[in-house]
Amino acid sequence: MDKRKPTIIDVETAESEAILTLKVDADLLDFRGHFNHFPLLPGVTQIDWALFYAVEYLDTPVTFKGMEVIKFQEPIRPDAKVTLVLNWDSSKHKLAFKYSSQQADRMVVHSSGKMKLGE
């Protein structure tokens, strides 16, 4: 079976926040063909994971109603260790997400965004 999700290293949850530490394994199906000489994790995969883990750890609605803000700043490469922070605002039905990693002496934000969820 083809692997579609990263390896979860750690998960911390609070009422409306989840922080996941992930290893973005090089053998993920999503790296195939995206791109052969410079593989990177597709943006659609990052959105999919944010929604998947929000449903699992924050009990958010499963229905995606659209993106409001999205920024892809730095590529996520095979075998990267990244932190995914999820914040759920139940009053507005909005999920905020941010992928980041520590690289040398600085914190790098790979992507961030907000999506509307509902029933």
Rank of each mutant, 00 (worst) to 15 (best):
S100T: 05
H93Y: 12
P6K: 09
S111C: 03
R77A: 13
K98Y: 03
G113L: 03
K65G: 09
A18I: 03
Y53Q: 01
P61T: 01
D10V: 06
K81Y: 08
Y99F: 12
V69R: 14
L58F: 00
G113W: 01
K3R: 15
F35H: 11
K3V: 15
K94Q: 13
L40R: 11
K116N: 09
T83L: 05
L20I: 01
T45A: 13
S91H: 14
M67V: 14
Y57F: 10
F35A: 12
R4Q: 15
A14K: 12
I70W: 03
K71T: 06
Q103D: 13
K94R: 15
I9L: 13
E56N: 06
V44Y: 08
M107T: 13
E119M: 09
H34S: 07
F72R: 06
D25H: 05
P42H: 08
D10N: 15
F31E: 05
Y99Q: 04
F35P: 08
Q73D: 07
D25M: 05
V82K: 00
D25P: 06
L20G: 00
K81A: 10
R106G: 03
S111A: 07
K98P: 05
V109H: 02
D105L: 10
R32T: 15
L28V: 10
G43E: 06
I47R: 02
L86C: 02
G113P: 00
D10S: 15
K23T: 02
P75F: 05
E17N: 12
L84N: 01
T60Y: 03
A26M: 11
E68N: 11
K114T: 13
T45Y: 04
M115G: 02
M107F: 04
F72E: 09
